[in-house]
Amino acid sequence: MELWKESQLRQLTFAIGIDTAYPILENFSKNIGFNFCAVTVASTHHQPHFKTLEINNYSNIWKRAHEQDNDHEADPVIAHCKNSMLPFVWSKTAYAHAPNLWRALQQEGLRYGWSQSFHNEEKAVRSTLSLARKNCEVSPLELYEHVGYMHFVTSRLTELFISTLPATAPKSKLAHLSRRELEVLQFSASGKTAYEISRILSLSERTVNYHVQNIMLKLNVCNKISAVIAAARAGII
């Protein structure tokens, strides 16, 4: 690896925020032959109060026009990066369903580019990094040489952004009940006794009580009524 690459990747590793990481990334992108660099960090689950982060070195004219764009053409970069972490190379064909956006990119000088995303499923966050330039198509060799760097950068940017999010309480795992246990629990919730449930399900009363005991253990409760309440709160029944 060239010394400058190692140095800049090391700087990205020790960057303490996106505001300090972006200038390093912008310089890195210029060193590998790209004029423009854009970073977007978005929620994957439409979380309330989540504000999408966008940083780029596009012109102010482009930014204003993009903010005021009312055409609502589907951006193929967004569509691709929502579902894949593979690189996406910009082309007229790729933008076939967004011709106005493609023309705007060409006018801005964003003629040749590629994008790559990183998904953090646990935090429901997706980071997308796009590099573009005025001249020269992106070659397969460039993709081969730089895809690893791009993946590292996008994952690092995701980490930096997640570190700014408020801490959330870990989600408790739902107890997994068998089909028979669910049946017993549902009949119990409707007020049926073990004897009545045994007649309905063609089981012995002892077997029904065995299922009830397993349900109580899985839901970490001490009686059948508490089991019904816990299951209802958890959305199991």
Rank of each mutant, 00 (worst) to 15 (best):
L143P: 03
H151I: 05
A104H: 09
S91R: 10
W62S: 02
M150N: 14
L201C: 07
E73K: 05
A94Q: 06
A96G: 10
F187L: 14
L177H: 03
L131M: 14
A189L: 08
K123V: 04
F118W: 12
E108V: 00
P76D: 00
E196P: 00
V184K: 03
N100W: 01
Y144C: 15
R199C: 07
Y58R: 04
L101P: 11
C81S: 12
P170Q: 10
N100M: 05
A124M: 07
V125I: 10
S91L: 05
L131G: 03
N100H: 08
P99I: 01
H66T: 02
G113S: 07
L182I: 05
P166M: 09
M150I: 11
V89C: 08
A167R: 14
A189S: 15
A167L: 11
D69C: 03
E183G: 01
H66G: 01
E121Y: 08
Y58I: 10
K92S: 13
V89Q: 12
T93A: 11
T164C: 04
P140S: 14
C136K: 04
P140D: 14
L110G: 06
I197R: 12
K92N: 05
T158R: 00
R156F: 13
A175E: 05
L174C: 07
V184Q: 10
F152I: 08
E196A: 02
F161P: 00
R179C: 01
R133G: 04
H146I: 12
Q106N: 07
C136Q: 13
N56H: 11
E181T: 03
T154Y: 02
R180M: 02
A104V: 03
R126S: 05
L110K: 08
D69Y: 00
A169V: 15
Q116V: 06
N60P: 09
R111W: 00
E137L: 10
E145K: 12
L131E: 01
A79Y: 13
Q116H: 09
H72K: 15
L174T: 09
E108I: 00
T164K: 14
I162R: 02
S188H: 02
M150R: 07
R199G: 04
A169L: 15
K63H: 11
P166R: 10
L143Q: 09
P166S: 06
V147Y: 09
H176A: 14
D71Q: 03
Y58P: 01
K173F: 08
A132H: 05
I61T: 15
A94D: 04
S91E: 01
N100E: 09
E122C: 02
L182S: 05
L129Y: 07
S59D: 05
H146M: 13
L129V: 10
G148Q: 14
S163C: 06
F187V: 03
F88D: 00
S84G: 13
R156T: 06
S115R: 00
E181R: 01
H66M: 03
N60Y: 13
L105Q: 07
